[in-house]
């Protein structure tokens, strides 16, 4: 993650501008019905959209469905994209975020219960996350496997409030800069920064609690 972040930051400005121009060209072709250009756009953006959806919604299945929905929406509205207002990447991210917010509003209750169970290990069947962590701590050499740790962070992320979650995902997982995030969320940069702070802090508290339970 950090290396990826560094890589993006260290990329020459010319390369980013060039890429933006290529994408803009693709979008123009796509708006005029060029299916090859559309395929290229899907190729370039589907992994990014899938990751945002996966981190926000939590499950791979939901993420797949949501990603498809995002692209159907992008396909239908690509003609309305205004390159003067935002980059295409920011625009696609905005479409994704709006769709996720709608989805979250519809399924708020189910989801909250699901993620609570998963994080707090309230599931009665099988070993809970706390059990697994405890088991690992008991054996001297063992460390919590990084895969399990990542799973734990992923679950905790689903628990923080959507306002904070989306800000944190866009910053810490998508490497968007504060100005871009402000564009996507349609709030001032100061609000973006404040939400990121609170989101990170809330996540840390959740994970500390989980650890304490495990120990």
């Amino acid at each position: 993650m950090l290396t990826l972040f560094t890589a993006i930051q260290s990329r020459p400005v010319e390369a980013r501008v060039e890429e933006a121009q290529v994408v803009a060209q693709l979008v123009r072709r796509c708006a005029s019905g060029d299916s090859v250009a559309w395929e290229e756009i899907v190729q370039r953006f589907h992994r990014r959209i899938y990751n945002i959806c996966y981190r926000f919604a939590g499950s791979a299945d939901d993420a797949q469905d949501l990603t498809q929905e995002v692209f159907i929406k992008v396909y239908r509205t690509v003609g309305s994209f205004d390159g003067e207002k935002a980059s295409f990447g920011t625009w696609v991210t905005t479409v994704t975020r709006n769709l996720l917010v709608d989805h979250f509003r519809k399924t708020r209750n189910d989801r909250a219960t699901d993620s609570m169970d998963a994080v707090m290990g309230a599931d009665e069947d099988g070993p809970t996350l706390a059990d697994r962590l405890a088991g690992d701590v008991e054996s001297p050499q063992a460390h919590v496997e990084s895969r399990e740790r990542r799973e734990m962070v992923h679950r905790a992320l689903l628990q923080i409030s959507p306002d904070l979650r989306e800000a944190v995902i866009l910053r810490d997982l998508q490497d968007l800069d504060y100005r871009e995030i402000a564009q996507v969320l349609k709030v001032p940069e100061g609000t973006v920064k404040s939400r990121i702070n609170r989101g990170r802090a809330e996540l840390a508290r959740l994970l500390q609690r989980t650890y304490r339970q495990a120990l």
Partner: peptide, 8 residues
């Protein structure tokens, strides 16, 4: 913590 999450 978040920096541990990899891109899927």
């Amino acid at each position: 913590w978040l920096s541990e999450l990899e891109e899927m």
